[in-house]
């Protein structure tokens, strides 16, 4: 059987990709954010997960408003990032894990979720930036990808509770996969930010800290707010916390925070990176 060794939660601001492309990791503006990945790099080197199951939202690379799935699960042999309109396309392809993708699809449908199934899909900066942050450099990615897209663009969005339940169903599916795979789960996006409207630039440190404080020990605390509450609290893009809520749901064991880094601002965003471990047994 497969097991989930932990979760990585990180902002995916496109500007981070630009900073990587320009090698600005040690620049005073960027360094406090990139430094949050020191513990993540060491942990990944020690754990060497076989697969990354990534909860993210597409911002208009693969999905347009003509067909907007609430939940979509990739089942492709390989995924690519492409130009999203500003000329940056990361070159390294992301190898897929089709058997695990189909197993997750079958199991979540069994759990009465109804995802769109995608044998061909592009992944945007919400997958590409976290992969670049976690595995920097030019070496081909060896951790395989199962992308799970959640609609955070067009309302009505799925409720936080629904996203959390989806995450739990995905977690159960991974644990029942009859192959000895070590899996890391990702939740990308957030934290508070708002790009548009008269409230552009909105940041809510209190709400972000509430999320960071409760993510590991009490994720259900985050479910007390509905989607529009979160828009009001965290901003219209801060609602990407739905991806974190889903990913946290997949961690069903004994969960402990290994590292957390909150840095404001990166671009217009309150940025954060959190590493959680997931163990089957309770650890003192």
């Amino acid at each position: 059987m497969s097991r989930i060794c932990g979760g990585i939660f990180t902002s995916h601001v496109p500007g981070i990709g630009g900073a990587i492309a320009k090698g600005l990791q040690q620049d005073p503006y960027w360094k406090p954010f990139f430094d949050g990945f020191g513990p993540v790099h060491k942990w990944l080197a020690a754990e060497k997960p076989d697969v990354a199951v990534v909860f993210y939202n597409d911002h208009g690379l693969n999905f347009f408003l003509d067909k907007m799935p609430t939940f979509a699960i990739g089942a492709a042999p390989e995924y690519r990032h492409e130009d999203e309109g500003w000329g940056i396309a990361f070159k390294r392809p992301y190898p897929g894990h089709q058997d695990l993708s189909w197993h997750i699809i079958e199991q979540v449908v069994e759990s009465e979720f109804d995802p769109v199934m995608c044998q061909s899909m592009l992944v945007d900066h919400a997958v590409a930036v976290p992969f670049e942050l976690c595995w920097p450099g030019d070496a081909p990615f060896t951790t395989k990808l199962v992308p799970i897209a959640i609609n955070t663009v067009q309302h009505p969005l799925p409720s936080p509770k629904r996203c959390h339940e989806l995450g739990k169903a995905v977690g159960r599916a991974i644990e029942s996969f009859d192959s000895d795979q070590k899996v890391v789960v990702f939740g990308t996006g957030g934290l508070s930010h708002q790009l548009e409207g008269e409230r552009a630039g909105h940041i809510n440190v209190d709400y972000d800290k509430f999320c960071l404080r409760n993510l590991a020990p009490d994720p259900e605390a985050l479910l007390q707010h509905d989607t529009l509450d979160i828009v009001e609290l965290a901003g219209s893009q801060g609602v990407e916390i739905l991806n974190w809520i889903a990913a946290r749901g997949a961690l069903r064991g004994s969960v402990r925070e290994l590292s957390s880094n909150y840095h404001v601002p990166i671009s217009n965003t309150a940025a954060a990176t959190v590493l959680l471990e997931n163990r089957a047994t309770v650890r003192a």
């Binding site: 406090p32 430094d35 949050g36 020191g38 513990p39 060491k42 942990w43 020690a46 754990e47 940041i203 440190v205 800290k209 402990r256 925070e257 290994l258 590292s259 957390s260 880094n261 909150y262 840095h263 404001v264 601002p265 309150a270 590493l275 471990e277």
Partner: peptide, 15 residues
């Protein structure tokens, strides 16, 4: 809003 808040756990894999 500028701030940075970092926590790193005591774990042999990340020290």
């Amino acid at each position: 809003h500028s701030m940075t808040e970092t926590r790193v756990g005591d774990d042999e894999r990340i020290v």
